[in-house]
Nucleic acid binder design. Structure first.
Lengths: 338, 338
DNA sequence: GCCTGGCACTCGCTGCGGGCGAGTGCCAGC
DNA sequence: GCTGGCACTCGCCCGCAGCGAGTGCCAGGC
């Protein structure tokens, strides 16, 4: 186990390195932090920290920089979550309050997060699986052509065309619409399949085919749209990455364009509480020099989606975590209100 | 007026520079192109071209690189549009044919364009103003709460909640729905306001308020949603920009995040035919070292939106223009079919 | 036993100077 | 008007030396 002071040294190294982007040496450390010991002592501590794998030297006879493992320890044990300042809180409020619809909420959230953290922001749209149904509508566009519209409690709308096996009368349509809604409104998407399972049976045989078609279309929509969308922003912040970044930035931009990768990334985050993945902890190769800070957000007590930021492993973890948490809470509130 | 050969020299310079990314000298030129004259002659021609502002030297005693003006001349007079190879055409077809809905079409188009041109692709969603109405639906969610759903011929769906001043009966609702649709289906969005102007008058006085509310909501949707959306992709290609790109890439990423900027950019492109804006011809500061190749596309004879790519001024114009044009045509076809 | 000052050593960074070579401009000749 | 020749420019590369931040180790002191 590392002594108290050695942890303190690690904390100081992380803080200084994050601030200056340059390897930090023993002398500079004792000058900038009141450790109460001499550089020589710090050097000994550093040697131990290096042996344990928490810090490393880029070259012999250069200062030390934290390793992924060092950041991990820092995040787990040494750093708290830094609450936002009240001007920042007010800024969030002002920025978010003009949002008019779900797209707008998500778009504003992305911009806000990117600005607050000065990093790349990723916001997942509220997932359908965990949402509940507000309304299901069926429109008759042509005698044998229907349109299915699904409205969620988070304000999202999905639509889909249906070609019916046989013409479907207005009354049957109204009937189906009414029964469908009475069963599923207010229920979770995940529960819908069971709830509608026996619906076709209660219809006349001539309509049964169409009803089945409609239902399977509805279920398909549920499945398909469960693959979730997301929005990213603040990619320009990648240019603050470091000096050598042609090589660094490229794989990151590529990863960011792969929605699948990002969704997986957010998906890996635990449901509750904040998740921080540092450097190689990220499964994706291109993100091995980045850290991901993610947290779930939701309109009620449960998370319906996640948001977070992607930045260099050398990032201000307490500040970033504070911003991510604050934004998630606020977005949750907004969704709950609407 | 420049002689035939001098134009030929300019063309050779552009081609070589685009290929090698390095200033091109007189000797290399005569070796790689059969100009039939000696390097000395080419030097004289280069001196003239430089005096006229078509090429420039980064440093004294280095090769020449084309200026914006040089590229402009190249694009206008010297370069054709290079048609795609048939494998490329087939690739487009394969790639686009699996698209299931409008979002998917746009998403695939972006990826395709980015891959073909190896540049940043920008695709605007089909604009509502020029689209026509396929269907308007009104749903009653609660006694005094309606939902308006608007479906376009390009497959786009917009929805909006309406709080009514007074409860609105099912029959009145059906009536309004029918009359509304009979007036606007198949018409252009731009024409809708006139077409529905006198609708409230034909209703009972007790319903008139609600009808007006619904209509104004409809008109609002039209106006609001006319502000168009777009999708971008291939930003990772920015890393191929050049050697010095921290400074180059940053303003470009920033500009790309400003949807307004991009929309303006595409908006400036002429409606028909391809538009190429080179370097400082772009109004936006951050894009002064990029060129934009844009073209309109549409489901019928008229353009409903635009798409294009953003890349370094040093780009393969004939190839890029060919790819952009081919993709635009193909997307147009797909939209027309659906 | 732990901390400290001292000391020799490492090694990346910077600046300097010279040689190289691609490229140019000019000029005289065809 | 084209060409070969020639002197010149100047950016780039390379090697070298000096500097200095930083290290590891050691002997001595609390």
């Amino acid at each position: 186990m590392l002594s108290e002071r050695r942890l303190e040294v690690l904390r100081a190294i992380v803080q200084d390195y994050v601030g200056t982007e340059e390897p930090v040496g023993s002398k500079a450390l004792t000058e900038r932090h009141k450790l109460g010991v001499s550089p020589a002592t710090v050097r000994n501590d550093m040697a131990v920290l290096e042996e344990e794998g928490f810090i490393a030297q880029p070259h012999t006879s250069a200062g030390r920089i934290p390793t992924d493992k060092g950041y991990r320890l820092f995040v787990d044990k040494l750093a708290g979550v830094k609450p936002l300042s009240s001007p920042e809180r007010r800024a969030i409020q002002n920025f978010m309050d003009g949002a008019v619809d779900l797209d707008d909420v998500v778009a504003r959230t992305v911009r806000l997060l990117a600005q607050l953290t000065r990093q790349v922001a990723v916001v997942q749209y509220p997932s359908l699986t965990r949402s509940t149904v507000r309304h299901v509508e069926l429109l008759s566009l042509a005698p044998a052509r229907l349109m299915l519209v699904l409205i969620t409690d988070t304000g999202r709308v999905e639509q889909r065309m249906i070609d019916c096996p046989a013409p479907f009368g207005e009354t049957s349509l109204a009937d189906l619409r009414a029964r469908l809604n009475s069963r599923v409104v207010g229920r979770r998407f995940a529960d819908v399949p069971q709830l509608v399972q026996d619906l076709p049976e209660s219809f006349e045989s001539e309509d049964r085919g169409t009803v089945s078609t409609v239902l399977s279309s509805l279920l398909e929509t549920l499945v398909e749209e469960t693959e979730e969308r997301l929005m990213i922003g603040g990619t320009a912040n990648l240019t603050r990455f470091g000096h050598d970044f042609p090589l660094t930035i490229r794989p990151v931009l590529e990863a960011l364009e792969e929605q699948v990768v990002l969704l997986k990334l957010l998906g890996e985050a635990t449901d509750s509480g904040m998740t921080v993945r540092i450097g190689h902890e990220n499964a994706h190769e291109g993100l091995s020099s980045t850290s991901v800070v993610a947290v779930g957000y939701g309109s009620g007590d449960e998370a319906v989606a996640k948001l977070g930021v992607v930045g260099p492993t050398r990032m201000d973890y307490p500040g970033t975590m504070g911003a991510v948490r604050a934004v998630a809470r606020y977005v949750g509130q907004i969704l709950a209100e609407s």
